[in-house]
Design a binder for these strands. Sequence first.
DNA 1: CATTTTCAGTTGCAATTTGAAACTGATATG
DNA 2: CATATCAGTTTCAAATTGCAACTGAAAATG
Lengths: 159, 159
Amino acid sequence: MQHSNPHNRRSNCPISFSLELLGDSWSLLIIRDIIFAGKKTFGEFLASDEGIARNILTNRLSRLESMGVITKSPHPDDRRKDLYQLTEGGLDLLPVLWELSAWGAKHEPATAETLAWLADVQMNKDHLIQLIRDTVKSGGSVFAGPGSVISQLDQEQPQ
Amino acid sequence: MQHSNPHNRRSNCPISFSLELLGDSWSLLIIRDIIFAGKKTFGEFLASDEGIARNILTNRLSRLESMGVITKSPHPDDRRKDLYQLTEGGLDLLPVLWELSAWGAKHEPATAETLAWLADVQMNKDHLIQLIRDTVKSGGSVFAGPGSVISQLDQEQPQ
DNA sequence: CATTTTCAGTTGCAATTTGAAACTGATATG
DNA sequence: CATATCAGTTTCAAATTGCAACTGAAAATG
C-alpha cells in the first residue's frame, strides 16, 4: 500500500483518503444524526447528546458540503433555517456507520441497547441497508418521523 | 439516538463510542498497515506514505494498546524493537476498514487502483474478510509476506 | 406594530492537540 | 571500539478545539 503522492492527498490509499475527509470525532456523527434521527437543521445537530460546539458544527457542515456529502438549502417553512440533507455520496457512508456501530456495540456492550431492535430484524444486512437508504433518501430516517424504518419493520413483522 | 450519559462517554451511541476511540486521522491507518502491509514495528509504521510524526505515532500506539486493539511485545530478533500486533478486537475492525476503503475508492477513483485486485476475486465479502482475518491472525497480511492473502488467491485462481 | 424570542452563525480567547526537528539512551553492526 | 540504527522523548511553534459571549435576521408574541 505504498505509492507516490500525485495530488494533494497524503497518499493514494482509499482508506487514507476517507480518513482525511471524515477522520474526526464529529463528521460521521452528523451523518448519523441525519440517517438515524432524521435531523436536518443546525439546531438539531447542535442538540445531540455528544455536545458539539457551534463553531465546530459550522466548520464540519461546510466541509461536508464542500466535499459533496451533504447539501444545504433554504428551509421551506422558516427562513432563518437551512436544510442539510445527504447526497448519494453521503448515503454511501451508511455501511461505514453500520460497521462502526457493530464494532462499538460489540466492544462496549452498554452501547448496544441503542440497536437492540436490530436483533429482531429478519432481513439480511444488505437489504436492511438498502431499506434505510431508500427511506432516508425520501426524507425519512431510521428512528424518527412517521415513515421511519422501525415503523416500517413493525408493520411488516408485528411482534 | 438520544440517551443519558452514564459513563465517561459523551453518549450511549455505539457509533459515537467507536469514533471517540478511533475517530482521528491516524489510528485506523495503523490498523490498516498491520492488516494490509504486514507492518509490526514502530519504524515500519513511521515509514508509511502518509507521514505520521514520531510523537503522534507513540501516542496512538499506546492508546490503541490501552484500548485493547493491539498488543505490544518484545521483538524476538532485535531487543531495540517491539512487535505490535492486532488483538481479536483489532481484527474486528477489518469490516470498518473495508467500508472506508469502498467509500474512498468510489469517491476518489484515483485511489481505487490500490485494490483493483479485488475485482478479480471470486469470493463474497464475508468469506474474503474471514480469509484476511485468519491470515493476519497467523502473522500474515493482505499484501506483504510469503503467506499473503493475494498470494493465496493467486494459487487458488491462477489468472 | 413593538417587543421579545429563536435561530444560525461569528468572534474572541484559553486550552489542547498537532507536527516537525533535535535529542536521548539502548542495542546492533562492522 | 566506533558508528549506525532503533524507539521513544523533548521542545516549541502552529493549528485545532471548545466554550461563552455576541450579532443580525427572522419568527413569534402580546
